[in-house]
Design a protein around this nucleic acid. Structure first.
Lengths: 154, 154
DNA sequence: ATCTCTTTACTAGACGGGCTAATGATCTCG
DNA sequence: CGAGATCATTAGCCCGTCTAGTAAAGAGAT
């Protein structure tokens, strides 16, 4: 494959197609994960957000989840019901504000996510670490430019 | 910020974060588009698929849409109802198979999509075209490796 | 030619997951 | 203390998908 690649110089306009292919691969991975864990897009995102915050020793409230996921506080309530019933998290009293509450992930869900996503993340990290400074620079510029191109207030 | 960037060589492990940032930008763009056109994810994807096929002079049937979008034929029927009512497409008799039908986009929807997505696509194309062969090669390898990393049957 | 199997889109009914509006509890500040 | 803001929750709705079942039409065998 590398021999063929070296022979056929990759045309720059093909990069867009490859970027699209990458996006498709990522979406497929997300779908697999969701299906294997029997939960929706937002449920999984909430769990990831929760685990990350928890790892940083931060307290998460339903309101924070609502803001981060871009959904209404009412919908978050129902989502928490769902995730509580499935045993992924627990509602705990908020230490300072008695109106609010602290959302904490159960130990099991922590393991589950790490197990599912950990290996993949390691593989991606490995790819990234192999880059030398020049290559990292190319990617840095490219990704930034592409992000800007998407922002339409360019 | 750009001055700081030039001074601080981008570390390779930051590339993952930048890739993530790109994904977020893309998702945001998609959401904006959907909201500005008042339609869901699949509706828009169907329209894009339809316009592309139509541009290639190809006939599109509901069954093809079902396969491409990964949804059931029944759901496609309802989607077609929706998109027909919103004036984005029309059902026409299939020339050969009287069981089936041809889905065609209305001229207005063609313009609408091109207008919304065209400028952005041009900007992305411009970024891609600026790459020299070496840079294209770096991106080529990186995107492929990342896609592989996601495929978990590495 | 007709009988059978397959394919195609459609209808009906259910469900999941989001939204809005309204409510009760609690905090905050004049 | 009292008025208004803020937090999670509940109730009721809607949208978009799914499964199951149906009618119409093509394809192939005898």
């Amino acid at each position: 494959m590398t021999a063929a690649d070296a022979a056929t110089a990759p045309k720059n306009y093909e990069v867009l197609a490859e970027l699209r292919a990458y996006r498709l691969a990522e979406e497929a991975m997300r779908r697999r994960t969701r299906e294997s864990m029997n939960m929706g897009e937002n449920d999984l995102a909430a769990l990831r957000f929760l685990l990350k915050a928890q790892g940083d020793g931060q307290l998460v409230t339903p309101g924070m989840l609502a803001e981060h996921l871009g959904m209404k506080s009412a919908s978050v309530t129902v989502m928490l019901d769902r995730l509580t019933k499935s045993g992924h998290l627990t509602r705990m009293p908020h230490p300072n504000d008695r109106r609010s509450l602290a959302v904490v992930a159960t130990p099991g869900s922590d393991d589950e996510v790490r197990e599912t996503l950990g290996a993949m993340h390691t593989r991606m990290m490995t790819v990234a670490r192999r880059l030398d400074d020049t290559q990292a620079q190319v990617l840095h510029r490219f990704l930034h430019s592409m992000s800007d191109a998407l922002d339409d207030a360019s």
